[in-house]
Nucleic acid binder design. Sequence first.
DNA 1: TAGATTGTTAATCGATTAACAATC
DNA 2: TAGATTGTTAATCGATTAACAATC
Lengths: 213, 213
Amino acid sequence: MTKETDESIMVPAAVIKRLPKYHRYLEELLNEGREKISSQQLGEIVGVSAPQLRQDLNYFGNFGQQGYGYNVKKLYNSLAEVMGIQQKSNMVLVGVGNIGQALVNSRDFEKRGFYLSAIFDTNPKLIGLEINGLVVKDVVELKDYIAENDINIGVITVPASSAQEVANQMIKAGIKGIWNFSPVDLKTPPNIQVENEHLTEGLLRLSFKVKEE
Amino acid sequence: MTKETDESIMVPAAVIKRLPKYHRYLEELLNEGREKISSQQLGEIVGVSAPQLRQDLNYFGNFGQQGYGYNVKKLYNSLAEVMGIQQKSNMVLVGVGNIGQALVNSRDFEKRGFYLSAIFDTNPKLIGLEINGLVVKDVVELKDYIAENDINIGVITVPASSAQEVANQMIKAGIKGIWNFSPVDLKTPPNIQVENEHLTEGLLRLSFKVKEE
DNA sequence: TAGATTGTTAATCGATTAACAATC
DNA sequence: TAGATTGTTAATCGATTAACAATC
């Protein structure tokens, strides 16, 4: 038994955090028609050191070529695959309040392959309403909908008080990941992935930094 | 000349990131009527180790008492002061689109002392419109408004293509911090603080983690 | 006073950077 | 081939954890 018990070496959280940024800048470069780039150059653009960039990339494969650098298109596609952008994934959203509606209306993520399949709320005044092509469903239908429609990501945009309950239902119905906008740290089993958007925390950090100056 | 050139030791970014979370959980404890808590107990609730919590807090002062622990109310207030929540601060928001409107409507941050003073857009259809008590102003008035109204934080919720330009204007007018929702890394002088809410990056990280499972 | 728990120094761990051999 | 730049190992740096003396 070698030490290769796991399929792959665990990727540090710090590396995962940087991946979307690499992807975003590569997209820009691609749109500018750039063909090749060195770790030195890309690092400067993104704001990381060249060795760090190479280290990060090499967690996922050898995307470069000695003496040449990286092919922008190839690297962009490789990162997209690493992040699971290639295969489209379906999401549900619960909580059609301010942020919920903003997400439903913008649907910025659809061009990245994340489709909003259905939206839910408990408010009778909202249920039945159509927002940007989606009819608000009653949250009592949530579990069945997830189970029957190949949904793997749930978006939570409800008030803090009901976020955990919504998460529980999503998990029971078989969701794999939760994109959480409620100012709550959800309790979830280890096989469920959670990404928090705690907006107010961002503002408090900003305030601290401004004050510190 | 001692090594105490700086007023205080630089606080690591990792510590700053955790502060709002401490604050949030202390608020909960306060609401539950909790009077005292040990670093051990608070650490468990927040999800950090007890020594780490003590280390973090001691960047800002000695808030505890040996043999006793921390007084919840006192610690809560101390952290609020550290983060600059005590003195109220005024903000402007530019970009009354989906997320912009959501922020204007919710104004969750007002109970933390962050007041939205004015909102701006370039769209003639939006200018003059009233949203949750605030009339949308023309962005040409932005600079003068900031300069004349003791504004120290600017919120950017415009499309990526105009984010840098808006930031430039804010900075010229004397803003201290930028809360940026545009998927762009703003170029700013070192005395300007920036906090990014790159929502799509969060979704991509989530996708990666789901795929990795 | 004895027990508890902080504040703080020292040890460990992990992540970043430097260096360079491999190789296109 | 010579020059360039990757992939990767080793060195450094910073952040977390352990340990314990200080003290309430």
